[in-house]
Design a protein around this nucleic acid. Structure first.
Length: 592
RNA sequence: GGGGGCGUAGUGUAGCGGUUAACAUGCCGGCCUGUCAAGCCGGAGAUCGCGGGUUCAAAUCCCGUCGCUCCCGCCA
């Protein structure tokens, strides 16, 4: 090794020791007669003093050093002189008196600051990602990610889980997201797909008798990007045999409870509660307007439809009569909102499809509402009472069909939480969302789609609904893990009986021939003693981002892609040579 | 596919019809033995993303385009 110690490890106990360090010039302070170098490596920063009276060589070389030069420094750890201790630095009680400085490699002036935590244009960061990754924020995030994955591996190993790799080149299936495909050289005109998740493979591992499987699995989906979506991302893929939903929830909950507690000294983030609260899908939509509610704050939606069903405001009465809802949200302390501020909120809900926004400002001794001339004072008071709004609060009301009401009030709820800083950034509010619908109607194609995926089991009593008319009412044995308003995982109990799988395919409008062509291997496998099984797949990138306090998963991925799925460092994707195309039997249909 | 935001020295920003395109920092040179975002002095560094248009005159206004970004659609 070119070093005996890490820069950040040195403490008062090392005083007097001869040591060798190697790292990067974090900052240089040249006083002419005396040069200070803050030397940085992964472990931290230490001050090196180059005094010509101790070593003329060290001082002379140090005078040529610049930011990000790679140095090896031999020297002695010494106590800092009286009054010169730097309490900002973990190594601030000591410094290293340089006896020899070697430039292992010089460096060009970097295009971004390594030593200042400053916002830099993301394109520049991504182009020079290796420099961006040198910065403290990214080092911290990537190391945190390592700890998360390491903890998960150790924990699941101790619970009897086996980590098994599954192929990256697999068969394309039409369900779900768009596949990334890879052409086959050996089989002209045929393509592999990259896995959207190892879904089928992990189920086959259950048929294979491994009983408890997990994998830190890379997944690929060729869909448009978001702050929480990259084209390739990492899941903790898990599957277990002889379990029911309760077992999967408990094991997952125990894992994340232990993980969060283990990392709390590092992240400073604590669990709001464990066991995690459970909400049915229906309840989540009713109380929060979303299936991924942020439970760090309240602001629950309140249904007031019955209170206004026969009031004097036709928008309300017609909405209720037409099967819609009138629901309210109380914004604490916002009664004094100006017309302009209310207009902003109205614009927000209109973007979600709502016609408008009705407000009631609860003021001392009076209620000011945009609809006071339509509603009797008793009706307004009934709404105030139902919503438990107090003096100084602003009640926001949306009337529309349930999906529009949900979307609008969810948007409002998140807007108020942001404006009023209601979400504690150091709190982790996990919850489970359960009892999802099994199927949803696909308007375009005129058929049912699986909400989760076609191997998800219906709840036991709901199988009959698939045959007898009302498949849309069937609930699935599916569950989502939600954390601070992010969906951080989803899973289900699978169908393990061939007859029920056939019923499922029939309901989805998949003919036996199509099922055989696409999923023949699954159906066949299930005929050889498939155990009851189920699993879950928490998203590693999202969980680490939340633990790191980052708003975007790019901040916890070493080499992420831009919103147009480019790698700005390597310029992927790129053209390939005509020879490569020819080998792959591909001709480009380039548009003119 | 659609909507919003951003694009000016290496980096972060200001300027928003007429400026020598400004400031900070970084960079280069000089001085400096106790700094720690060191200090002081001097210097270099910008076809204002790109293309077109309006105008006597465009970084500034208009149109288009490209890049980055946030969102909707999409993401079983």
């Amino acid at each position: 090794m070119l070093k005996t110690h890490g820069c950040g490890e040195l403490r008062a106990e090392h005083i007097g020791q001869s040591i060798t360090l190697a790292g990067w010039v974090h900052r240089r302070r040249d006083h002419g007669g005396l040069i200070f170098i803050d030397l940085r490596d992964r472990s931290g920063i230490v001050q090196v003093v180059c005094n010509p009276e101790i070593s003329a060589q060290a001082h002379q070389v140090a005078s040529k050093c610049r930011s990000e030069f790679v140095l090896q420094i031999k020297g002695t750890v010494q106590a800092r002189p009286q009054g010169l201790i730097n309490p900002e630095l973990p190594t601030g009680e000591i410094e290293v008196a340089a006896e020899a400085v070697t430039i292992l490699n010089p460096a060009k002036t970097p295009p971004i600051y390594i030593n200042i935590e400053d916002e830099v244009d993301e394109a520049v960061r991504l182009r020079y990602r290796y420099l961006d990754l040198r910065r403290q924020r990214m080092q911290r995030n990537i190391i945190l990610r390592h700890r998360v994955v390491k903890f998960i591996r150790d924990y699941l190993d101790a619970q009897g889980f086996i980590e098994i790799e599954t192929p990256i080149l697999i068969k394309s299936t039409p369900e779900g997201a768009r596949d990334y495909v890879v052409p086959s050289r050996v089989h002209p005109g045929k393509f592999y797909a990259l896995p959207q998740s190892p879904q089928q493979l992990k189920q086959l591992l259950m048929v294979a008798g491994f009983e408890k499987y997990f994998q830190i699995a890379r997944c690929f989906r060729d869909e448009d990007l978001r702050a929480d979506r990259q084209p390739e991302f990492t899941q903790l893929d898990m599957e277990m045999s002889f379990v029911d939903q309760e077992d999967v929830l408990r094991i997952t909950e125990d894992l994340f409870t232990a993980l969060v507690r283990e990392l709390e000294p590092e992240t400073g983030k604590h669990l709001k509660e464990s066991p995690f609260p459970r909400l049915s899908y229906e309840e989540a939509m009713a109380r929060y307007g979303t299936d991924k509610p942020d439970l760090r704050y309240g602001l629950e939606l309140v249904d007031v439809s019955d209170l206004v069903a026969e009031c004097g405001f036709r928008v309300f009465t017609q909405t209720v009569a037409g099967g819609g809802q009138v629901k309210a949200l109380v914004a604490p302390g916002c009664a004094a909102y100006s017309r302009r501020q209310v207009d902003e909120l109205t614009g927000l809900v209109q973007k979600q499809g709502a016609q408008g926004l009705v407000t009631i400002a609860v003021q001392e001794g009076q209620l000011k509402s945009t609809v006071s001339k339509f509603l009797a004072s008793g009706e307004l008071e009934a709404i105030v009472e139902r919503t438990k709004a107090g003096v100084g609060d602003l009640i926001c009301i949306v009337a529309d069909q349930p999906p529009v009401v949900a979307r609008s009030l969810d948007a409002l709820r998140r807007e108020f939480a942001a404006r009023l800083s209601l979400a504690d950034p150091d709190e982790l509010a996990f919850c489970w969302v359960l009892d999802f619908p099994l199927l949803e109607w696909n308007e375009e194609e005129g058929r049912w789609n699986a909400v989760h995926h076609p191997f998800t089991s219906a709840q036991d009593e709901d199988w009959a609904l698939l045959e007898s008319g009302d498949p849309g009412q069937a609930k699935a044995k599916a569950y989502d893990l939600v954390l601070n308003g992010w969906e951080v995982g989803g899973g289900s109990i699978r169908i393990h009986r061939r007859d029920l799988q056939a019923l499922m395919f029939r309901t989805l409008g998949i003919t036996p021939e199509q099922a055989q062509a696409q999923f023949g291997h699954m159906l066949e496998a299930f005929e050889y003693g498939a155990p009851p099984h189920g699993g879950i797949a928490p998203g590693i990138d999202r969980i680490v981002a939340i633990l790191a306090g980052e708003p975007n998963i790019k901040e916890v991925i070493a080499f992420p892609k831009t919103q147009t799925a480019m790698d700005l460092m390597t310029q992927a994707p790129s053209e390939i040579s005509p020879q490569q195309l020819a080998e792959l039997h591909i001709r480009l249909a380039t548009e003119e």
